[in-house]
Nucleic acid binder design. Structure first.
Lengths: 210, 210
DNA sequence: GCAAATTTTGACCGATTGGACAAACGTTAG
DNA sequence: CTAACGTTTGTCCAATCGGTCAAAATTTGC
């Protein structure tokens, strides 16, 4: 294992890199990697293009840095799923955490969705490595619950996919959800309704019969 | 209501436009609107760029034409949902049709996802009009079933969102699904498993108690 | 306070982009 | 056969793209 370069950073470097990443998140999430331009990111970050390129060597460099951080944030809720509480409580709070992430970090969700849609050209190794390992591990826990009859038997992997799909839908397809539901109910109301619905769908459906 | 221009088309025009749309679907679905270039589409369609621009005035023109068709295909499964068969049968076949579309038309699904992710700049009116009207109509049918106690009470709109999200997930996030499940099971197996899982999740969960 | 190091900028570059255009090439009806 | 119309192509263009560079401005260490 090679040690990563020391990368000593001045105070200004640390701050400006942060500002750039925040701006890039906004722009990448809205336009995708190819659709975003360095000029847009620079403007959103309040600096000139050459100035931005002083802090990141290239557009790709920004994107890679962003995706690395993002994946850690993204996997956090699933990492917390363990065998401590009872299955229903564990799954309920996993779904809630995931939905809260979709509500509070929609740009991160869209950035990730964009990357996967394009075929994950920059994160495929992480999907096949870190992500797969984590999902397999958690699927085994869920499978254990099923074997013990504590929740109904079903496919744990597809259960996880379904939780991802339904929760992230509220971030990725937000404009569609808003268009269909109309302006009657604000963002808070939508998420309350979604939380109630998803809890019923997954939790009631998973409780063991009788 | 203005009548649309006659648009007389020769045999060659009809054929070539079809070839271009097929090629554009492939390219747009993989790279998004901004990421796709006219040259790429022209090459995929087996013709020169100026030749392509003889059949479509601009890149946007191609995209708009594609999205209009797409939306009709996309809404078809939901249109078929009606009050003829019993609720469980109706919903089961809606879910199956939707999942089959994700399997058989993944490019269309990704193209649509791309458009929504970018904020639906080109189809927003259709979402707020045609789509909303259709969903509202079908939600009323589902609500009727709930009132009659034929399926459990829940939010019909969010139920429809959940069906969209879970089925389209297998098209839009295909590379992630494949990365996590590994190569053990081929595409057919994955979709069989998904179909079984989704049926259990939605149908068992919706059957009236007792 | 000053020299060294860091940060910022304007000007610039080659490549790619969407699109225009006129000339050349095909096709077809009379 | 040929004139009219439909199709195809090579060439070109202005705009935009990611990125470079040297010089100017600023901050920092002493």
């Amino acid at each position: 294992m090679e040690a990563v370069k020391p990368k000593r950073r001045t105070r200004i470097q640390t701050e400006k890199r942060e500002i750039i990443l925040e701006a890039a998140l906004e722009v990448f999430a809205q336009h995708g990697f190819r659709g975003a331009t360095i000029d847009q990111i620079a403007e959103a970050a309040g600096m000139s293009k050459p100035n931005l390129l002083y802090y990141f060597r290239s557009k790709e460099d920004i994107h890679v840095t962003l995706m690395q951080r993002l994946l850690q944030t993204w996997l956090a809720p699933l990492r917390e799923l363990d065998d401590i509480d009872d299955p229903i409580t564990e799954l309920r709070s996993y779904i809630r955490r995931k939905l809260e992430m979709a509500r509070d970090y929609p740009r991160e969700s869209r950035l990730f969705a964009n990357e996967i849609l394009q075929g994950a050209p920059r994160v495929m190794p992480m999907l096949e490595g870190e992500l797969k390992d984590l999902v397999d591990e958690k699927a085994q826990i869920i499978r254990g619950w099923m074997r013990d009859g504590r929740i109904v038997r079903t496919d744990p992997w597809h259960l996880i996919f379904a939780i991802w799909a339904t929760t992230q839908h509220y971030a990725d397809f937000d404009v569609q959800v808003r268009a269909v539901l109309g302006p009657d109910r604000g963002a808070e109301g939508r998420f309350e309704d979604a939380a109630r619905f998803l809890e019923q769908l997954f939790i009631e459906g998973l409780k063991p019969k009788g």
